[in-house]
Deep mutational scan, measured.
Amino acid sequence: SLSVDNKKFWATVESSEHSFEVPIYAETLDEALELAEWQYVPAGFEVTRVRPCVAP
């Protein structure tokens, strides 16, 4: 099958004044980091952490 098993990760994104967490959907932690950097670094943010979303 061609289905992709995307998992939810939380990326911590920082600017000079703010820090916030955004959801990233990817297959692996490395891919989540790449996606977060691709989305947020060009906008002037720094991705400081990516972690798996742990269900309660």
Rank of each mutant, 00 (worst) to 15 (best):
17 E>S: 09
42 P>E: 07
55 A>E: 13
23 P>N: 04
15 S>E: 03
19 S>A: 06
28 T>E: 02
52 P>C: 05
8 K>A: 06
46 E>N: 09
55 A>R: 10
1 S>E: 08
52 P>S: 08
51 R>T: 10
28 T>P: 01
19 S>R: 11
3 S>A: 10
31 E>P: 00
6 N>L: 14
54 V>F: 12
45 F>S: 03
3 S>Q: 13
40 Y>W: 14
41 V>L: 12
16 S>L: 09
2 L>G: 11
55 A>P: 12
21 E>Q: 08
18 H>F: 00
29 L>E: 06
37 E>C: 08
54 V>H: 09
9 F>L: 01
50 V>A: 01
9 F>H: 02
29 L>R: 05
37 E>M: 13
33 L>H: 07
31 E>T: 05
36 A>P: 02
30 D>W: 14
26 A>R: 02
26 A>G: 03
32 A>G: 01
31 E>Q: 14
15 S>C: 12
5 D>I: 12
34 E>G: 06
42 P>R: 08
26 A>K: 00
4 V>E: 09
37 E>K: 15
34 E>L: 13
20 F>L: 05
16 S>M: 11
8 K>V: 13
26 A>T: 01
30 D>T: 12
17 E>G: 11
24 I>L: 04
38 W>Q: 15
32 A>L: 03
2 L>I: 12
31 E>L: 13
7 K>T: 07
33 L>N: 04
7 K>E: 04
31 E>H: 11
49 R>D: 15
11 A>T: 02
23 P>M: 15
34 E>F: 14
6 N>T: 14
44 G>N: 03
6 N>Q: 11
25 Y>S: 03
24 I>Q: 00
42 P>D: 07
12 T>F: 05
29 L>S: 06
42 P>W: 09
33 L>F: 12
11 A>Y: 02
18 H>C: 15
22 V>H: 03
7 K>M: 08
34 E>P: 00
28 T>R: 03
27 E>L: 11
35 L>T: 07
12 T>H: 06
30 D>G: 10
42 P>I: 07
26 A>Y: 02
28 T>K: 03
55 A>D: 11
38 W>N: 13
35 L>G: 02
1 S>F: 10
24 I>D: 00
34 E>W: 13
43 A>Y: 14
5 D>L: 14
27 E>V: 09
7 K>Y: 08
6 N>P: 11
30 D>K: 14
15 S>D: 12
38 W>H: 14
19 S>E: 05
13 V>R: 00
43 A>F: 14
1 S>G: 09
25 Y>N: 04
22 V>Y: 06
53 C>G: 07
43 A>P: 05
47 V>Y: 00
4 V>C: 15
3 S>I: 13
11 A>S: 02
32 A>Y: 02
19 S>T: 11
24 I>C: 05
28 T>Q: 03
14 E>C: 07
20 F>I: 05
11 A>D: 00
36 A>M: 04
22 V>F: 05
51 R>H: 06
49 R>L: 15
17 E>N: 10
16 S>D: 08
5 D>P: 13
23 P>A: 11
34 E>H: 11
12 T>I: 05
5 D>T: 15
55 A>N: 12
28 T>C: 05
17 E>L: 07
47 V>W: 04
11 A>K: 00
49 R>I: 14
26 A>E: 01
30 D>R: 14
52 P>L: 11
19 S>H: 08
20 F>G: 01
41 V>A: 09
29 L>W: 14
13 V>Y: 05
25 Y>I: 05
47 V>Q: 01
3 S>P: 08
4 V>P: 09
51 R>K: 05
20 F>S: 02
51 R>C: 07
12 T>V: 05
40 Y>P: 03
10 W>V: 08
52 P>E: 15
9 F>G: 01
47 V>G: 01
49 R>P: 04
31 E>N: 05
43 A>C: 14
46 E>I: 15
30 D>I: 10
18 H>M: 12
7 K>L: 09
44 G>I: 01
18 H>E: 11
43 A>W: 14
56 P>Q: 12
18 H>N: 08
39 Q>I: 15
56 P>R: 03
19 S>L: 05
20 F>M: 08
55 A>V: 12
34 E>V: 12
15 S>Q: 06
26 A>I: 02
4 V>M: 12
23 P>C: 14
55 A>L: 10
15 S>T: 08
56 P>V: 12
22 V>C: 07
40 Y>E: 04
5 D>M: 13
2 L>E: 10
11 A>F: 07
27 E>Y: 10
33 L>K: 13
47 V>A: 03
51 R>A: 06
45 F>I: 02
42 P>N: 07
11 A>G: 03
12 T>C: 08
13 V>D: 00
25 Y>P: 02
5 D>K: 15
27 E>D: 11
52 P>M: 09
54 V>M: 11
26 A>Q: 01
46 E>R: 14
16 S>W: 09
53 C>N: 08
36 A>W: 03
8 K>N: 05
32 A>N: 00
4 V>N: 13
9 F>I: 01
33 L>A: 05
38 W>P: 03
38 W>M: 15
53 C>S: 09
29 L>M: 10
45 F>N: 02
45 F>V: 02
9 F>V: 00
48 T>M: 06
2 L>W: 11
29 L>Q: 07
9 F>C: 14
29 L>H: 06
29 L>D: 03
13 V>E: 00
23 P>S: 07
28 T>A: 02
5 D>Y: 12
37 E>G: 05
1 S>A: 11
43 A>M: 15
12 T>M: 08
48 T>P: 04
10 W>G: 02
56 P>I: 11
25 Y>A: 03
26 A>P: 02
42 P>Y: 07
52 P>A: 08
24 I>Y: 02
16 S>K: 12
1 S>L: 11
28 T>Y: 03
7 K>F: 11
1 S>M: 10
6 N>M: 14
56 P>E: 10
8 K>L: 15
6 N>S: 13
35 L>S: 05
13 V>Q: 01
25 Y>L: 04
53 C>E: 13
51 R>W: 13
53 C>L: 04
15 S>R: 10
